[in-house]
Design a protein around this nucleic acid. Sequence first.
DNA 1: CAATCAATTTTGTGATCACATATCGACGAT
DNA 2: ATCGTCGATATGTGATCACAAAATTGATTG
Lengths: 245, 245
Amino acid sequence: MDDKVRPIDVTTVQERVYQELRNALYQGRFMPGEVLTIRALAAALGTSPMPVREAIQRLVTENALTQLPNRTFQVASLTSETYDEWIRLRCEVEGYAAQRAAQRATPAICNRLRKINRDFGAAIEAEDASGMLQGNQHFHFAVYEVAESDTLLKIIGSLWLRFGPVLAFVQHVPGSIDMFRRGVSVHERVVAAMERHDTAEARFALALDIRAAASWFRRHHFGAPVEVTAGDAALPRSSRRSRAF
Amino acid sequence: MDDKVRPIDVTTVQERVYQELRNALYQGRFMPGEVLTIRALAAALGTSPMPVREAIQRLVTENALTQLPNRTFQVASLTSETYDEWIRLRCEVEGYAAQRAAQRATPAICNRLRKINRDFGAAIEAEDASGMLQGNQHFHFAVYEVAESDTLLKIIGSLWLRFGPVLAFVQHVPGSIDMFRRGVSVHERVVAAMERHDTAEARFALALDIRAAASWFRRHHFGAPVEVTAGDAALPRSSRRSRAF
DNA sequence: CAATCAATTTTGTGATCACATATCGACGAT
DNA sequence: ATCGTCGATATGTGATCACAAAATTGATTG
């Protein structure tokens, strides 16, 4: 019977609105600090305000949107201070995901990851700005899916949600090509570690990827000379003890 | 003028409903798997269904509630498999919070934590079941607050939310007193590590606290002999390399 | 020309209504 | 006796309305 009919879309309107807003945030279609009004979104989406307000409330609980005391909503923006905070959190959580992925990696999985990373590299050489962002995201989440933890995946998704509007800036920064190129080689390092089931190295390499991109972006966006020193978050090798952040 | 009147509660009804449900979940007033209906909750809370549905949706995005394909809501329950998953996540995230707390600890903070831990111990000796749970929660979050990261605190709050209904069972298990007593001494170990700014030890000790309580609970609830071996999540000492989970 | 105040519009919030679907129970046919 | 059908009830979902507070606008005044 499965070949006769296909399952239809039974998701609720609110869910579709939520996913649409989520994608828009991921892809940086909203600017940080941009204010959102329920009625305007409802009109743009072609629905009533009702599903929109519920979707917006969900995004507020995920810290993707902020509700001001005026009760108006705006796209959450990362200040210079909270930026570091989020980067370190990402190193911890996504590093852990890479660690778990390294345990479960198979040759087939590693080949698939290499394919994805090659596509990422192709987008870079083609200077396809949005393709780079999507390719990078594609690789990271492909790694995290290997960790086989739905809840972990959801948490990481929430973390990324907050960086979507920030990533929108990256496309306008000259020299981002070089940064992405370095990303490709670090990704390869992650896959190589996964292949050897070297969990600590996988965790370190992935945290390195995040940290490198973060400090590059910090230089070009906040203009601060101080780099993010998430350092021991990944505890790369044996004898390193925790130093101050 | 400030001494004439005090600020009144200007939060929205939806927010208060959300907090009320949150507290109820924390304290285990709902059983895992219990189904919740919007209208019934609205009647019990004395409001219209409107604020309730938004609050419920927020809890669904936090994975504290589940929405079945029937579109009905139920309190999320931890199966034997997902249980381990959440425990390991807690070791990672809360261990990281303890690590950060150890960097920022001051003698005054450590004294306050010891005071909180003594209150926890007092509740145990008084065999005050709900006092134990609250005392334990109080200590943990007091540690996490020292980490000075609002977002980290929120994430941990979401993780705990899922364990609230599970904790409700603990009160009915005989012998929980001994488990809690061991908790007090592990807490002391955490504080001692914080006092020395020994970040790795603080992280390990706190993960140990979670792990020990988790395996105790697993024995008495799921009846499985296999213990949670979150092992290297905390990377306690120098030369340990990652072993399989 | 700048500042202030009132009128108007906008916006989030909550309540109510309408509707499709799911659930459960009774009844009847095979 | 079992399965299927029909009807009644309950429940989530979406739309619309009402209202208070905030934002905006425009006129008026110093």
